[in-house]
């Protein structure tokens, strides 16, 4: 199935900002992270269609997955 993956901050370095991504049906976020070479310990926030998820979340076709390192501001 096809999903959209968006990367932010330091995760863009050497990778990309936004990309269509092919992955197995109902695959978990952890699979995508592994494919991208991002370790789970580096991850701060995962959003699926703008809602918080965790690495065990099962993705659906056409989902948008946004991946952030731990960031702050304000």
């Amino acid at each position: 199935m096809n999903i959209t993956v968006k990367l932010f901050a330091s995760f863009r370095t050497g990778r990309f900002g936004e990309k269509n991504f092919d992955c197995p049906e109902a695959c978990r976020i952890s699979y995508v992270l592994q494919e991208l070479g991002i370790s789970e310990s580096e991850v701060g926030v995962l959003l699926v269609n703008g809602r918080h998820g965790d690495v065990d979340y099962s993705l659906a076709p056409d989902d948008t997955l946004s991946i952030f390192p731990l960031i702050g501001g304000g």
Binding site: F8, A9, G50, R51, S66, G72
Partner: peptide, 24 residues
């Protein structure tokens, strides 16, 4: 700490634009 040690130093507080956009 990743935020106070690296994140804020690299991107400043404006790193929030994209995450707030994504989160709606």
């Amino acid at each position: 700490h990743p935020v106070t040690g690296q994140g804020l130093k690299t991107y400043g507080t404006n790193i929030l634009v994209n995450i707030l956009h994504e989160a709606g």
